[in-house]
Amino acid sequence: GFTKEQQRLGIPKDPRQWTETHVRDWVMWAVNEFSLKGVDFQKFCMNGAALCALGKDCFLELAPDFVGDILWEHLEILQKE
């Protein structure tokens, strides 16, 4: 899971503390893990605080249908851990 990747890359547990690099690493991991298609990494050029502050509607505009939902749900789980 993502926990191993977080440990390997030194990504903080709390997504709100992520840098732009951490956000990119997470999106890249999720794309590979969940076989997601059509993700534009440029749209995720922000730090974790900005990403978490978007709200669901704005977040879902960053990625194609269903893909955004998967990313959003995973981000929500990470914020609760």
Rank of each mutant, 00 (worst) to 15 (best):
Q7T: 11
M46R: 04
G10V: 07
V67L: 06
E33L: 04
V39M: 06
L9Q: 08
E73R: 10
R8N: 08
V39S: 03
W72F: 10
V27F: 07
M28V: 14
G68A: 09
N32R: 14
L54W: 03
E61S: 13
F2R: 06
M28F: 10
M46C: 05
H22G: 03
P12Q: 01
L51Q: 01
L62S: 05
L36I: 07
D57G: 10
C58W: 09
V39F: 07
E20M: 10
S35L: 05
L51S: 00
F59C: 03
C52R: 03
C58P: 11
W29P: 00
V27R: 01
G1V: 09
A49L: 09
I70V: 12
D69T: 09
N32L: 08
E5L: 09
A50V: 10
I11S: 05
D69A: 12
K4E: 14
N32C: 09
A50Y: 05
Q7A: 11
Q17T: 15
D14Y: 05
L54G: 07
N47D: 13
C58I: 10
H22R: 01
H74T: 06
C58T: 14
Q6T: 09
T3G: 12
L75H: 01
E61V: 04
T3M: 13
V27S: 01
L60W: 04
A50D: 14
K56D: 00
E5Y: 12
L62A: 04
I70L: 10
I70M: 09
E73Y: 05
T19F: 01
F59W: 05
W26A: 01
W26Q: 01
F34A: 04
E5G: 06
F44R: 00
V31R: 06
I11W: 10
A63W: 13
I77K: 15
K37T: 13
K13I: 13
K43P: 06
F41R: 10
G38Y: 06
A30I: 07
E33D: 06
T19A: 07
K4R: 10
V27C: 08
K56T: 01
F59I: 04
L51Y: 00
K56M: 05
L54C: 03
Q42C: 06
F66D: 15
I77E: 12
F41G: 09
K13M: 10
A63N: 05
F41L: 15
E73C: 06
V27H: 01
E76R: 10
K4N: 14
R24C: 09
D25G: 12
E73A: 10
E76K: 11
Q17L: 10
H74W: 03
